[in-house]
Design a protein around this nucleic acid. Structure first.
Lengths: 123, 123
DNA sequence: GTGGATGCAAATTCTTTGCATGATA
DNA sequence: TATCATGCAAAGAATTTGCATCCAC
């Protein structure tokens, strides 16, 4: 756990939002002016594969990361691109429930729900 | 509706899978050797915005397109990357149901569910 | 000291755009 | 004929990789 990796983890958890690698990079440079974008990408990948952060592939061209690695869903505004966590499960079955419905041939890793909306600010 | 656009629509509907722009491009060159990748991208965008095909942003780095534009969910294998349609709704509330639960402040456009699995072939 | 992590730059990959030409209605 | 679509090539954007150096254990 290098100071860069810790700073990246702090930055992503401290934000509470769903930043892109580039946004994190610009934030981090205030604390660590010599940090490189490659380090941000490499550490996000490392942190994601060890389950400490989540990776969102739903964006328009650019990947977002999530300081909350637990299972939860997202609301994404199709106008401004902002992503928010969905607190309740909204009645969506969890991985086990979906797995049962699929009949056991698949091992279900996770269930990702993305609710595309026009948010109040964009209407 | 040019012959290129029709060929692209045929190719994506005829496949039944969820090809990337590049896969479609290579398929199409057998019929239209002079077609360009830019034309494929432009037409997929056009077809998607007129609702004739679906766009999947969930892939790893590369966008996939869907010949079935209606609302339905997907199963994606985290090993081989294959995407399949999920026929049943699996008990997931539809856009209206989610909209009600969100309390009316958001206009819900669609609900995308991605079930990440290890498929039978990859286990 | 050793192995993994870093910074930098270059390379890759996917996608979009500019522009002259060609096809369509 | 006027308009929109195409092919080609170049540009752009996001991400990854090669490599020498540096840091943590």
């Amino acid at each position: 756990m290098t100071q860069q990796r810790r700073a990246i983890l702090d930055a992503i958890c401290g934000r509470g939002s769903h930043p892109s690698a580039d946004e994190l990079y610009h934030d981090l440079r205030q604390r660590l002016p010599r940090i490189s974008l490659a380090t941000v990408y490499r550490n996000l990948e490392t942190l994601a594969s060890s389950g400490l952060v989540g990776k969102l592939e739903h964006g328009c061209g650019q990947r977002r990361f999530d300081g909350n690695p637990g299972p939860h869903h997202h609301v994404r505004c199709v106008c401004c691109g902002r992503i928010e966590d969905l607190r309740q499960d909204m009645g969506v079955p969890d991985a086990e429930g979906i797995g049962r419905q699929l009949g056991g041939r698949y091992r279900v890793v996770s269930v990702c729900v993305d609710v595309l909306v026009v948010c109040p600010g964009c209407q």
